[in-house]
Simulated scan of single mutants.
Amino acid sequence: MRKITLKVLTKLPTKYVTSGVILIALLFVYGVIGSYFIMHLNFVDSIYYAVITMATVGYGDYTPHTGIQKIFATTLALGGVALLAYVFNIILTNFQEKMSNYSKGVRKMQAIKDMDDYYILCGYGRVGKVVLNELTQRNQNVIIFEKNEEICESIEENESVTTIQRDATEDDLIAKLAGDKCNSVIISTGDDVSNLFIVLTIRETNPDAWIVTRASKIENISRLRKAGANKIVSPEIIGGQDLYFESAKPHLLRITVRHTSDEIFDEFQIIAKHGCTLENIDYHLPGIETPLTREIKTKNLLDGKNYLNYLDTHADQKQALKNLYKLTNNTHSHLISGPDKPTFDALVNDLEKIDEIIGVNLSDEEIAKITKNEI
């Protein structure tokens, strides 16, 4: 506690320290001059009298007698009291602020420690906002590094989103957090030099970290790759949503299956059971490489129930879906995001019990060859 107090007191804002020193000096000069000309003391005694009166000690060895002397002593004493109150207020206010920030920082670090896994997002600009939206839609834990205080205060924190107001280029905390519990580090600042430095900082201590970074200039892509970035993304080309998907590559599974439209909910129950998110469904027309893609982005079992109820009450839509499945010979692929490989292994094992699995992580070209043979 003593070390913390000393650290706080030695980091008072310069403007407050300067103003306090100036006020003390002015009051002291006023006290010395007044003591010399009004109290008729010599120079040394004037200094002595100014100090003890400002400090409201008042030993009584020099007593004002005339009206002007009493007024001078009163103003000097009141000025000393006001000045002491001002200085102590600065110290206490700053101390409370620093202690509050320290306590807040401790709580944030404890919240991070309690997270099972998380993503780290560096930079909360236009691209960073899109990435955070993609992550929160999938109920992911996110740690945001942002050096701008106003931006940090504008971010709504909760049990899944924590902000750290630090410059990632000047702090090694990001390297410490990019360990085993970190799914991916997403660097979305608009400065390629900063991005490069952050990549180097993380890669130095975390050789296995999955790092995705933004590149504002195409010529810097090769430099970022050499620095150790796994993926380099140009938001001007593919945007923030694809930045998320690239960062989640180790946690994405594409499984190609064959089943009828009547088994949709059974399949979705298994996906939701393992805490995974069904990102989209690709319907493969026989022999055609490019599939028909349908975006889903949900892990909520209630969404599956609502969709099932919708089909039961809309016979035309249900028949249209049956026709689509018939057209594709019931062959389609699910893009699923999840926490880790063991979860995907268990998910595939459960799906094998109800579905015919054609393959895992097959390319569109490989699937087209398979469906072409079925024509």
Rank of each mutant, 00 (worst) to 15 (best):
D172F: 13
N230Y: 00
A73D: 03
N195R: 14
T66S: 12
T213K: 12
N373H: 05
G228A: 01
K326M: 03
I38G: 01
S100M: 12
L173C: 02
P339Q: 13
I38C: 03
E295P: 07
F145R: 02
T277C: 12
I71Y: 06
L327V: 00
K273R: 11
M39R: 00
Q110N: 13
A215N: 09
S247N: 09
R294K: 04
L121I: 13
F43H: 00
N89F: 15
S333G: 04
L200R: 12
V106H: 11
K70N: 12
N158W: 06
N280P: 02
A85H: 11
I143Y: 05
G304A: 08
N309E: 15
R225Y: 12
K7Y: 05
Y30K: 01
A368V: 00
I232C: 10
E219M: 15
E204L: 02
A50L: 01
K113N: 13
M54I: 11
R254C: 14
P250E: 09
K11V: 00
I187V: 11
T290N: 05
T256F: 08
V57G: 00
P250Q: 04
S154D: 06
Q165E: 15
D350K: 14
S19I: 12
K231T: 03
Y59S: 11
N158R: 08
I375A: 08
K129Y: 08
K147T: 04
A85R: 09
L301Q: 07
S247Y: 03
A227G: 05
D167M: 13
E149G: 12
P286A: 10
A168H: 12
L196C: 09
G58E: 02
E279Q: 15
F28Q: 04
V57M: 05
Y62E: 02
A85S: 13
D266V: 02
N280E: 13
E219Q: 15
V348Y: 08
Q140L: 08
N300C: 00
T169C: 13
D172M: 15
M39D: 01
I174F: 02
A320R: 06
I112F: 03
E289Y: 01
E267L: 10
N309L: 14
A50F: 06
L177C: 14
V131G: 00
V348W: 07
E366F: 00
G67N: 13
K353I: 05
K322Y: 01
D316M: 05
M109A: 04
E295I: 15
P235S: 11
R107G: 09
R258H: 08
D172V: 14
V17I: 15
S154M: 05
F88R: 08
K273Q: 10
Y102N: 03
F344S: 08
